[in-house]
Design a protein around this nucleic acid. Sequence first.
DNA 1: CGGTATCCTCAAAGATACTG
DNA 2: CAGTATCTTTGAGGATACCG
Lengths: 123, 123
Amino acid sequence: MEQTPSCRVETALEILTGKWKPSILLELITHDTLRFSELKRHLPNITQKMLTAQLRELELNDIVHREIYQVVPPRVEYSLTDYGKTLIPVLHAINAWGEKHVDHLAQKEMLQETTASSASDSF
Amino acid sequence: MEQTPSCRVETALEILTGKWKPSILLELITHDTLRFSELKRHLPNITQKMLTAQLRELELNDIVHREIYQVVPPRVEYSLTDYGKTLIPVLHAINAWGEKHVDHLAQKEMLQETTASSASDSF
DNA sequence: CGGTATCCTCAAAGATACTG
DNA sequence: CAGTATCTTTGAGGATACCG
């Protein structure tokens, strides 16, 4: 319960870090609701174990809602909670900076001509 | 060079993650310029090895500038580059969300009275 | 003072197999 | 379909000692 700036930044970053959490969150932002298997299809390299684990952590932090339909075969849908949606502007800021940074890195590699790159996606 | 949103977010997060990078960056934001030993003093639990390693990574990404004064005893000063300063708004957004989240977590633990907490620091 | 060089630990992530 | 259960791997981070 320190509440120093770095405590707050680290607390926030704990939500976002985890190898797959940014991808999962971005999928849920753009698709709104996804079943477990759909999420897995969108993230081809993730294992079931990791997908489950990361989703559980996000759920524990109230970022993600897990809706279970008691049918056969089972159907489980994931979506952002309202609280989770407050993360969107943060991800947006990170995304925007990341785009600049990828360009910045590219410029370092080839210090010659600057290929004008495309404008930012909405996300 | 994929340039998908999650690629960009992950690229940006690579800069910020690392156990000590947020703290180091916040120190450099608030103090402007710090010697190696001053930085170490502000971060009591970091080892020299980790401090060096994290600073080197930040330097490689053009976030931090390392100025060496050839004197005895050696003097090395660290500061944010102009490019590194573009991270400040991002850290600010993360910090602001982190503050809300610490409150959010606190509310989950004691679901009783809401102690009105202090307003946000400048950082 | 401001670092390297080694060695070690442990937890996050991956591979694989099984299940209600 | 949507998960567990195990086992193994990897590498970030830490402890400690030494150096220009």
